[in-house]
Computed example of a mutant assay.
Amino acid sequence: MRHQEQFSDHPFFARLATDPPFERLAPFPVCLTFFVMTFQDILRLCDERATEPGYKSMVHRHRLEDAGHDRWFLGDLAALGLEPPAAAELFGERHRAARNASLALLSEALRARHDACRLTLLLTLESAGHVFFERVARYLARIGERRRLRYFSQTHLDVEKAHDVFEEDTDARIEAIALDQETRTEALQLIDRCYRELTGMFDAIEAQIAAGAARPALAPSRPRSAREAARGAAQGAALRVVRTPGPRAVRTPGPRPFARRAPRGDGGSPG
């Protein structure tokens, strides 16, 4: 809970609380693309590598419940009029922090030595997701966002809270798990690393948003009135140069650069 509370105090969420225009949050949400896509592989790898039946069932269920959320994300980008980044952009500087965090979290699924740590990884990401989706959904509701969204909606948050791991019997099973000291230490260190990576990613997102917000917005162009348009046309006509045709130059024959040889027998040199 300590990590979750600290994460909820992140400056990005503090910014959302001020209800800025959605356009002033760029590059959010496009900058989350790499993370959202990689998250599906994190789920898959945890599921494929879990072997102990008790953990396997919970990890597999978690994967099924979060399957397809990447398509929700892409659908929301389209609904918001945003293009998903092309490969060159996705692997460029602006998405570097998301790649760093995503790959670090992916490595946790690969190097975990116990299924308890794989389950811990998924539950940690779930706890951070609750903070994110709750804050974003409330922000969009406050600014009156009317476009049909799924990934960034209250519906997604409701789906997350309805996951099997929050059912009473599953929660009791998790609470009853007894870990040896080595595995417990490994799991706690994993939680620290996960929140450190997530915080670093949102640090970079917030820095990019702040840099964009510091640039003055361009004032919208004001349409000209009919009188202003007529005045501009008159001024343009007064300044227009009228070209009159001048005398055409008369070309006179000059010496040719090369004299063609005269045919033999017409008085020319025999050469």
Rank of each mutant, 00 (worst) to 15 (best):
R94T: 10
L157R: 10
D180G: 12
D115C: 12
R113D: 06
S153Y: 09
R111I: 01
E175A: 09
R193W: 02
L125S: 05
R99T: 08
F73C: 03
F132E: 11
R147Y: 06
A67V: 08
G81Q: 05
W72K: 14
E126Q: 10
A112Y: 07
K161R: 15
Q154Y: 00
A176H: 08
G75K: 11
A116M: 01
H130M: 04
E175S: 15
P84H: 07
V159L: 07
T120D: 07
L77A: 13
F166Y: 07
V59G: 00
I143R: 14
T170C: 12
A176Q: 08
P85F: 11
A79E: 08
E175G: 11
R118V: 08
L140D: 12
E167N: 10
A116C: 02
R111A: 09
G200F: 03
E126A: 09
V59T: 05
E83R: 14
I143T: 09
E83K: 13
L82W: 04
G75T: 11
I177E: 10
E168I: 13
A79F: 10
Y151K: 06
H69Y: 15
S153W: 04
L77I: 09
D158M: 05
R71M: 15
R196Y: 00
R99S: 12
E182V: 06
F152A: 10
E83L: 08
M201S: 04
D192W: 01
G75P: 05
E108L: 11
E160T: 12
P84G: 01
C194A: 03
A178P: 06
E175C: 13
L157V: 14
R99N: 07
A141K: 13
G144I: 03
L77W: 12
L74E: 14
G81P: 10
A137G: 11
R150W: 07
E160H: 04
A78K: 11
A141Q: 14
D66A: 13
H156R: 15
T185A: 02
A97T: 12
D66N: 15
L77Y: 13
L179R: 08
L125D: 02
G75Y: 15
H114Q: 06
L157F: 09
R148N: 03
E175N: 14
G75L: 13
L110C: 05
R61Y: 14
